[in-house]
Design a protein around this nucleic acid. Sequence first.
DNA 1: TATGAAATCGTAAACGTTTACGGAGTCCAA
DNA 2: TTGGACTCCGTAAACGTTTACGATTTCATA
Lengths: 344, 344
Amino acid sequence: MSIRDLARHLDISIGTVSRALNGKSDVNPETRERVLVAAKKLGYVPNQSGRSLRQGTTNTIGFMIESTIESADSGGNFFMPVFEGVQSVFRRHHLDLVALLCGTDEDPATYLNRVVGRRFVDGLIISATTRNDPRISFLLERKIPFVALGRSATRGSYPWIDLDFEGVAATAVARLVHFGHRRIAIGVPASDINLGYVFQDGYKRALKMSGIHFDPELVLRAHSNEEGGYQVASGMLAQKQMPTAVILVNENMAIGLYRRFYEAGIHPGRDVAVVGFRESTQSRFLSPTLTCFRISLRDLGIKLAEALLSTMPAFMSNYPQGRIELVWPMELVPGESDRLWRGT
Amino acid sequence: MSIRDLARHLDISIGTVSRALNGKSDVNPETRERVLVAAKKLGYVPNQSGRSLRQGTTNTIGFMIESTIESADSGGNFFMPVFEGVQSVFRRHHLDLVALLCGTDEDPATYLNRVVGRRFVDGLIISATTRNDPRISFLLERKIPFVALGRSATRGSYPWIDLDFEGVAATAVARLVHFGHRRIAIGVPASDINLGYVFQDGYKRALKMSGIHFDPELVLRAHSNEEGGYQVASGMLAQKQMPTAVILVNENMAIGLYRRFYEAGIHPGRDVAVVGFRESTQSRFLSPTLTCFRISLRDLGIKLAEALLSTMPAFMSNYPQGRIELVWPMELVPGESDRLWRGT
DNA sequence: TATGAAATCGTAAACGTTTACGGAGTCCAA
DNA sequence: TTGGACTCCGTAAACGTTTACGATTTCATA
């Protein structure tokens, strides 16, 4: 069922059929109608390879997510709503979104090279950017439209949207200090993901603002999952003077952290204050409920999509131009995990 | 940087270049070497649209996952490891895997129709199959290679791999009965997903085996997330005679269920027995740890990939033929959530 | 009626591959 | 010297689209 079959069936030329289907102006409204109903009746769908080859564009956007060991068990629930948002924008422009999974046994940069080289996608959204992310320089030099979810320390100008981890650290520290805490630990990712650095910097700055000396012992590196949280709690318990509060950068860590404290007879929200990261159904139903930060992942996805489209020649005209370096604000959602504190 | 440029640069014909790159036999080993090094040096990557158009095959497999409201916050951590497994097999065959996200505002069947019609993928893995899944009959009639993760009640023969929810129900019921329980509730998905039916059937059968009368009141429908778990617990608490045990079909429900019971002063693992579904880092670090079922998602992914390849003409020869209707066994992992039971 | 513009459509080239086919060598045996 | 077998390579068609261009028709106007 190619366009040729359709044309034969209607006894008109394939050029006219193509123009009719693509909404070109120089075609009789009446024949256009005939073409459209015939296409629907015969179930004609244009072959994407053919049109891609001709137009040099695939109408497909790739969202690259890495299923690293660390995030394998936790990344999904974050990305799904983001996809939703991205897709809601793309649909209006007849763009398809595919998620590109880079396995753990392949280097993200070479994977990207293959995908881009094949002309598989017209644009990319990359996520989980590392401190110096080779993908960014690669995409810049190849002039592939992209937007990064998470900035990086890479030189050069490129569009990125990043969560305000510095703000998270500042808000959390200020709140905990206000509750009387002085010894505040943080759990940061063990990987090279850039958010860890941003978060840690924000933490230090916030401590300085409160006149608290920075103690490197309070920075606990761990994987961003339940087991990592368990280790963070263990690290806190092992210190001669246990921190009275902790800020986590991932909500899954909270579960393991709770667990470890329970085992030690310590009750989060009563004996130790916990601030988690992202508000979710999970954080709302934990016991104690987690004080954390709210973010509309769907809106984030929408913004990502718009940012990308504003850099793509075919869609630029519909979107405002200019640098895109956006720090996404988050709102603190009070929970029980840091409220029941009664002082040392 | 097309194959034509490469040929010009080497001063040989494009046909020879193509044959050299594709490992055809009728090419001088020496010139092949020249082609390969030049291709690498110039960074040539074949245009996928061109080859797809010519060969009628895209070398791409789609894994369709629906980001329904229900699973939006929980589906990810399940699929990531599965992707890993699938991809490990595909890589050997130079197949690319993309995740196809069907948004909540689009009908899965029409989405599938578009993707398939465009000749975007050579094969498909579909998941979250419903009771009567229109995608299955669609793919069957269009003769698109596919494998379903989760069987369906649809007539016709097609390859599927399904988790052994009947076995889960049987094992859990038998165990709980052995611990002295007679009034065992279950939490099943509120959606039309087929696993809910399978699970429920297994539950009924297991009750009959133990000589326990089936009470429809004990079947509690809810979303497969934390909030759903909360509602299941509420449902149990509301009954004149509260069930002494509950089996959940999703581990995220456990968190909300725990929450609700805590609020009522009831301790899971002491006052009520809970059996969850899938073993994960989460289930291991909950308090109490969840008695649940272990499954290697990576192996599941590998099996899915092999099943699909065995139905695709280009790869059939490498894989055993025959019907693929596989019930994937799961092993019970004892936790604390159903062990501390001391009887009524 | 002649003319030109507008509307509508057909023709053919082009996108980047792969591959069937045939041609040009080379080598060896008859 | 001829013929055949073999190796290697070039030629050109084909995949399904889109689109620039020109051809034809219609229609109003001079």
